[in-house]
């Protein structure tokens, strides 16, 4: 019986001795103000849609031109990045008159070696 009383005393002492850890409240971070300023979603400039980290060409161009109110579209961004595209779009529109008639099968026989030489120097890797 004597021993039990002693146990009670020791355990009470122990509990009282521990400190209380105060927990401070957490603050939420605000969204970056850029997208609010330009009205564009993160994915316009950042490659990862969740924003942050690497930027795409439009993002790069927007930062390059001192973060104006509007993000340049792709073609304008490219020119800002020093990429000239002199492409006349009309080349790619089709005229509306009918396509030429199919030529009947009239092909001169080809020498095998000639095909091989021709095929060999293709562009690319």
């Amino acid at each position: 019986m004597r021993r039990h009383r002693m146990f009670i005393i020791v355990s009470v002492l122990l509990l009282a001795a521990t400190l209380a850890l105060a927990f401070h409240p957490q603050t939420a971070e605000a969204l970056p103000e850029y997208s609010a300023q330009t009205g564009e979603p993160c994915a316009t400039c950042h490659l990862s849609p969740s924003g942050g980290g690497p930027r795409g060409p439009r993002g790069q161009a927007w930062v390059g031109s001192g973060k104006p109110g509007v993000v340049p579209d792709l073609v304008e961004a490219l020119s800002l990045l020093g990429i000239q595209l002199d492409v006349d779009e009309s080349q790619y529109q089709a005229p509306d008159q009918p396509a030429p008639e199919a030529q009947p099968l009239a092909v001169e026989p080809a020498q095998a070696g000639q095909i091989h030489q021709w095929l060999r120097n293709y562009d690319g890797n």
Partner: peptide
């Protein structure tokens, strides 16, 4: 400093467990 965070602290803070063991052993 309510009782729940006190109990949480007792069980969670490192060192307290060791102190409990020491007191129990030396007491015994």
């Amino acid at each position: 400093m309510d009782i729940s965070s006190l109990v949480y602290a007792f069980f969670n803070t490192p060192g307290v467990g060791g102190a409990v063991i020491l007191t129990i052993f030396t007491g015994a």
